[in-house]
Amino acid sequence: MDKEYINILIFGHKNSPSRHLKIKKKTFKIILYFSGFLLLCLTFFICDYIQVKKKAYEVARLRQETETQKSQLHFFSSKIEDLEKQISKLKEFDKRIRIIANLEKGQEVFPFMGMGGPYPSDIRDKLRLEKDEKGLVQQMRVDIERLESEASTREESLSELERLLQTKKEILTHTPSIWPAHGWVTSGFGFRTNPFTGLTQMHEGIDISNQIGTPVVAPANGVVSDIQNDFVHGKLIVLSHGFGMTTRYSHLGKIFVRVGQKVKRGEKIAEIGMSGKTTGPHLHYEVRLNGIPVNPMRYILN
């Protein structure tokens, strides 16, 4: 009978009597198994708690990282908008340059789609499609730096081209490229026999013959720098066109401008006359570059 029980002695202090417990072996086994089960459950819960704490820490870290990336993405998005505005300005530059250069509407001075790398809209597509946000942020940083550099370089290049074309346009508008009067060229530029002395002399312009009163127009934009009236040239106008270019008109009749007045290409400045030393009504027309007479026919385009 005693074999079915387990005897347990519990000793107290010196003066306390000891206690004797008898527990059935079956009951003891149940208690032992239950204690082991409780210990196992406790171990499981402790491990699970540790894992939960780790995951909570990881979630907090990921949230912080996500907030940082959101801030970076917002910053990059703002930079992309600035770049789009800058590129829009470059397109306006291109439009103005095409107008100045008289290019066709469809022509591009610089093909913007050939810049290399993604366009800002491509970056937005990446924002929607890319899963690796950290890699995306890094890629966006590289792309934005490159786009900023290219946009800045393109803007400087276009500005320089605009200044160059504007200067060329100014030169063209101030170049005497149209006939100053209708008529017939009766004497060209170069050496000829003087009709009054019979000697060979340099003729520093061209003679355009026509009736008295035929309009004389400015062949380019300029300013009336001088008006004279002498025995040889008669009534004379000098126009200054800038860039070292001047034109002279002799043997005039009526004069319609004054010194200091600005004139535009095609504007009437006088009429053909017969003033000064001349054999008949005509316009003596000269072009001078830095004070040296040059052949006017080199500049006339019409």
Rank of each mutant, 00 (worst) to 15 (best):
V59I: 14
E104V: 14
K70P: 08
A60N: 13
D132R: 02
D94G: 02
E92K: 08
Y119Q: 10
G135K: 15
I87E: 03
T68F: 12
R96D: 14
M113L: 09
S121E: 13
F75K: 09
M113I: 08
L62M: 15
S78N: 11
I123R: 01
R98N: 07
V142P: 01
Q51N: 08
V109C: 07
V109A: 07
I99S: 00
D82A: 03
M113V: 04
S71I: 13
D94I: 00
L103H: 00
E84Y: 04
E65K: 15
V59D: 01
Q138W: 12
K85Y: 09
R98Q: 07
M115A: 02
L73V: 14
V109M: 11
L83S: 01
E92V: 00
R61K: 13
D132E: 03
P120H: 03
L90C: 08
E65T: 13
E67H: 13
T68S: 13
K53V: 15
K134E: 12
R98S: 05
E65Y: 11
K105Y: 09
L90I: 06
L136W: 05
K131C: 01
P120M: 06
F93Q: 04
D125Q: 08
K53C: 11
K79D: 06
E104H: 10
F76N: 09
E67N: 13
L83P: 05
E92N: 08
E81S: 12
G116E: 07
G116H: 02
